[in-house]
């Protein structure tokens, strides 16, 4: 469920947090999005948008970390099969490295 698409914030307009809107670029499509649920959003940020509302801001560091784990897998594949697979991502409640 919940088709939600990542896009880049172009501008943010409005003072009232619940009324804040702006333009978001999804590839080459630009659409108006409601920012009520991402109060700290700024131009240049990436957000996930569902039915016209931004519901989360994308965390580049977390994205890099998760993709980094996969790079380690790719490396492990090319070297040899190893019994020590890299650790998984931290659970909620644990701090991120």
């Amino acid at each position: 469920m919940c088709l939600a698409v990542p896009g880049r914030v172009i501008n943010v307009v409005g003072d009232e947090p619940l009324d804040r809107i702006g333009q978001v670029a999804f590839g080459s499509v630009v659409r108006r999005v409601n920012f009520a649920y991402v109060p700290d959003v700024a131009p240049g940020d990436y957000v996930i948008v569902h039915v016209g509302f931004a519901i989360s801001r994308l965390d580049q560091e977390a994205a890099d970390y998760a993709l980094g784990l996969i790079s380690e897998l790719e490396q492990a594949n090319s070297e040899s099969f190893s019994a020590d697979c890299p650790a998984g991502l931290p659970s909620a409640g644990e701090g991120r490295p």
Partner: peptide, 8 residues
């Protein structure tokens, strides 16, 4: 509980 989708 683990979070694969931590970027979001």
């Amino acid at each position: 509980l683990e979070n694969q989708y931590a970027r979001v």
